[in-house]
């Protein structure tokens, strides 16, 4: 009986090829179409894989239609004792929330981690939370750097941006700001329509 080996080999490779393509299409589909929830993003935050961790957070930040969902779900993690999870939840609220979320963040103004409480204060000052001001003033002469920033940035940059902007004062040193704060803290009020603090 004549052998048909060459045809069989060819057929075998065609089958393998089709199978391979099928596997690829399926794996590609699942890899790129998997729905990632807010919980996945926060719980998956990994300080040793910053590119992907911040990319996952950006899935919500770069999609304003998902902001409400992101901020709302992130609040559930604000009591976490895991510093990475807590950071991811705070970061997500900072970048997707609005002033309605201020009450969730206010307790973190007294968090032990100066980096975290300064990031929180940098957001809360623009949401009218006056308690953020002394936290920002405290960071002004800090030598620490903002966590994970690219390029590296001083922690004090947040205060240097926000304090003059929201108070219309132009002090430079921590001492000057401290003095001003002691004088005005009882009378200062937040004007939500002008986004300013004033007397």
């Amino acid at each position: 009986m004549p052998t048909k080996t060459p045809q069989r080999i060819a057929a075998f490779f065609v089958v393998i090829l089709i199978f391979g393509i099928g596997v690829y299409i399926l794996s590609d589909y699942f890899r790129f179409n998997r729905e990632v929830t807010v919980s996945d993003v926060i719980e998956g935050f990994d300080g040793s894989d910053l590119n992907n961790s911040f990319y996952q957070l950006d899935k919500y930040i770069l999609s304003p239609s998902k902001h409400a969902e992101a901020a709302q779900n992130a609040t559930a993690y604000l009591g976490s004792s895991d510093p990475e999870i807590l950071f991811a939840a705070v970061y997500l609220i900072v970048n997707t929330g609005d002033a309605l979320y201020a009450p969730y963040l206010v307790p973190l103004l007294s968090h032990d981690d100066v980096l975290l409480r300064t990031v929180v204060a940098g957001r809360l000052i623009g949401w009218g939370e006056m308690a953020s001001i002394p936290v920002l003033i405290e960071s002004l002469d800090s030598d620490l750097m903002l966590p994970y920033a690219d390029p590296p940035r001083r922690l004090s940059e947040l205060a240097q941006e926000a304090l003059p902007y929201y108070t219309k004062q132009d002090y430079i040193s921590r001492n000057e700001w401290q003095q001003w704060w002691s004088q005005v803290k009882e009378q200062l009020i937040w004007n939500a329509s002008t986004q300013q603090y004033g007397l």
């Binding site: 770069l62 940098g122 957001r123 000052i125 623009g126």
Partner: peptide, 15 residues
């Protein structure tokens, strides 16, 4: 460059 809407003091990590 996607520019995130932000307020002064708000920490967003660019890349």
């Amino acid at each position: 460059v996607y520019v995130v809407d932000s307020d002064p003091g708000q920490y967003y990590r660019g890349w």
